[in-house]
Design a protein around this nucleic acid. Structure first.
Lengths: 106, 106
DNA sequence: CCCAAATTTCGAAAAATATGGAAATACGAA
DNA sequence: TTCGTATTTCCATATTTTTCGAAATTTGGG
């Protein structure tokens, strides 16, 4: 993971709306969620949502797949794991750093 | 960890210069590093560095301690661990997510 | 082909961020 | 106190981000 890429991913997650959006997709799990469904949960204009979503997709944190007219969005777990790994590389020096290694969520 | 705080920390790390700065402090370990020493490694004007540093301190990712005229800066490991924990909370769904739990660095 | 639903792109304005020179401040030493 | 070093604050500017209405686009169905 290059510094530039890590920084762009961190920046993408560093916006409250986008972080919330990302969390929604994580909770949706492997089924993913249509853009429209996400919009219902976030209550922001579709164009604003589209911009934020594009940012997450561009940085590799979210993937999209067409299903007819709707676009299914999914959190990209490997991408997030790589980012966490990058951060952990720098952290995990002394204090207890065992970020829920065996977690089950989505 | 609240979403707002996590977002502000992610945003703070989401700038290439600040991420680099943060990494430098992590590598410096518990001894920390004086602002001036950091400046030597980054080669940016002191005022710019001060702004970035302030951002990291304000978000709780870095701490500072005076030693005479110099200011020693240290990466705040617990802070980073909390952030990683927050991200891992959302991640760690399926793929291998064991971010170097037993790592020795600084 | 034409329609309706889903989503993006365009265009534009407000707000926030990044950057750095110059001046100010903090601190210890002489 | 006066000086010099370390660092921040002030101020101003260029750039980027955020936001969203309106128009365009995509896709499948009738």
């Amino acid at each position: 993971m290059k510094l530039e890429k890590a920084a762009s991913q961190l920046e993408a997650l560093g916006n409250p709306t986008r972080l919330q959006l990302y969390r929604i997709l994580v909770r949706a799990g492997d089924d993913g969620l249509a853009v429209g469904s996400v919009q219902g949960k976030l209550d922001i204009p579709s164009s604003t949502l589209s911009h934020h979503l594009k940012r997450l997709v561009d940085t590799g944190l979210v993937t999209q797949e067409r299903q007819a007219t709707t676009l299914i969005c999914r959190a990209n777990y490997p991408g997030m794991n790589a980012l966490i790994g990058y951060l952990a590389d720098e952290c995990c020096a002394d204090a207890a750093c065992a970020p829920a290694a065996g977690k089950a969520l989505a």
